[in-house]
Simulated assay, not measured.
Amino acid sequence: MSSTRVHNSTPSLLTDFKEITKMRLAISVVFSSVAGYFLGADQIDFVTVLLLAIGGYLMVGASNAYNQIIERNLDALMDRTKNRPLPAGRMSVTTAFIIASIFTVLGLIVLYIINPKTAMFGAISIFLYVSVYTPLKTITPLSVFVGAIPGAIPFMLGWVAATGSFSIEPGTLFMIQFFWQFPHFWAIGWWLYDDYKKGGFFMLPTGKRDRGTAIQVILYTCWTIMVSLIPAFGVTGKLYLTIYSAVIIFLLGMGMLYYAVRLYKEKTAEAAKKLMFASVSYITLLQIVYVLDKFIRQWI
Rank of each mutant, 00 (worst) to 15 (best):
F97V: 02
D75K: 00
V280A: 10
D45R: 07
A100E: 08
A232R: 07
S143Y: 09
A119M: 13
S33E: 09
T118S: 10
G255E: 01
K265G: 00
M59S: 06
F145A: 13
D194S: 14
I218Y: 03
R209G: 06
Q68I: 00
D16K: 12
L39G: 03
F202W: 02
L285R: 10
G158V: 02
L14A: 10
L219P: 05
K208F: 11
Y57C: 07
T138E: 14
Y259V: 06
T236V: 11
M1Y: 12
P141C: 09
T213N: 09
G171E: 04
S279M: 12
V261W: 14
M254Y: 00
Y290D: 07
F121K: 03
E266W: 01
I248E: 08
Y259G: 05
T81V: 02
F185Y: 08
Y133W: 11
G89R: 12
W159A: 01
S3K: 14
K82R: 13
K198L: 15
P11L: 03
G151Y: 02
L192W: 13
Y258I: 03
P170M: 04
E19N: 14
L239E: 01
P141I: 04
S131T: 13
G151H: 02
W186D: 01
L25V: 14
T224G: 13
L13N: 10
G158Y: 01
K18E: 07
S281K: 12
G237L: 08
H7M: 10
G107I: 05
S143M: 11
T10F: 10
P135N: 12
Y66K: 02
K137P: 15
R209M: 15
P87G: 05
G255T: 00
I249H: 04
K137Q: 12
N115Q: 09
T206Y: 01
F155S: 07
F17H: 09
G234K: 10
R209L: 07
E19S: 15
